[in-house]
Computed example of a mutant assay.
Amino acid sequence: MKKILVTGANGQLGSEIKMIASHYPHFDFIFTDIDDFPLDQTEVIVANFNRIQPDIVINCAAYTAVDKAEQDTVVADAINHLAIATLASLCTVSGAKLVHVSTDYVFDGSSPVAYKEDDVPNPKSVYGATKLAGEIACLKNCPESIIIRTAWVYSEFGNNFVKTMLCLMSERDTLSVVNDQIGSPTYAADLAQVILTILDSTKWESGIYHYSNAGEISWFDFAKDIKEIAHKTCEIKGIPAADYPTPAERPAYSLLDKSKIKTIYGIEPIDYKVSLKIMMERLTP
């Protein structure tokens, strides 16, 4: 039985992997989070890895406070970059496989078409820069690793755009949402299934892959869909990102091309609205 170490297990993606772990009884999952596997403490990472001796590592842990990272650069780099270098080195030495989750923020958002895996990254934020550094360290220290870039992650767990919108729509008559940042949401449950499908397949093809749900929308469009499914009456107004300044710059266009993961692993991304409805039904059973 293969032993799978999941870091960041209490986050959105880690929590979704927990939900479907029982469907894979041939895997022995070890779920860890910041309390028992802190990624900003190298010695603890090494000690815990050597104690657990995993066959596979799924790194769901990350410093994801995008705006806070602009000031908290040392900790963001420790978690998003240096810890990945350590994990990748440990996997290479032990022969373990590594799946690392990255982000659309490694791109600057200037592309007129969906980003492919070999497009040149150019992050515009500290968060994006530390995640890119983590990717580079991952592939340098463990060339056989798989990196999955994703975007706009949400789930019934943790804090995310969908849950924030639902809360605000219940409290306010009017909401203003950015309408000139384009991408596609990712339901963490779908991404969890993708990762375990890859691990359960008969092949392991290392490298970078892109995955999000299917569709191309703005945050404004996303908010309108949430309103429609939840039958809210709050008015949603579209505004340019320039009218909603944030400490960290967001990519204006970060749609990810999913052709590679479709071709190699036969994974067909689910339409974002289908997944959004499922998630919202789970929120209000």
Rank of each mutant, 00 (worst) to 15 (best):
D77M: 02
V101W: 08
A114R: 15
A78F: 01
D104I: 13
L132D: 09
V106I: 15
A96F: 13
D119W: 07
E70F: 10
T73K: 04
V74P: 00
E70N: 03
D104Q: 01
S125F: 14
C142P: 02
V113T: 11
L98V: 11
V93Q: 12
A85G: 12
V66W: 05
C91S: 14
A96H: 01
I136P: 06
T73W: 01
N159G: 07
G128I: 04
T164K: 09
P143M: 05
S110Y: 13
A133S: 13
G158V: 13
A114C: 11
S110H: 03
S111Q: 13
N80T: 00
K116L: 02
A137P: 09
V74C: 08
I147L: 14
K68N: 10
C91D: 01
Y63V: 06
E117H: 09
G95T: 02
I79R: 08
I136S: 15
T164F: 06
A78L: 12
F157I: 15
G109A: 05
I79F: 09
S145C: 13
V126I: 09
V93Y: 07
K124A: 05
D118R: 09
E70H: 07
V106K: 05
R149K: 12
S155A: 11
F157L: 05
G158Y: 12
T64P: 08
Y115T: 04
S125I: 04
Y127L: 06
Q71H: 10
A151W: 02
E117N: 11
E144K: 10
N141S: 10
N160P: 13
V162M: 08
A62C: 05
D108V: 12
V153A: 14
I136N: 09
N141E: 13
A137C: 08
H100S: 15
N160Y: 01
T103S: 14
N160M: 08
E156I: 08
V106P: 01
N122C: 11
K124Y: 06
S89H: 07
W152V: 13
A96Y: 07
F161N: 00
I147Y: 09
V120P: 02
T64H: 08
K68E: 10
L82I: 06
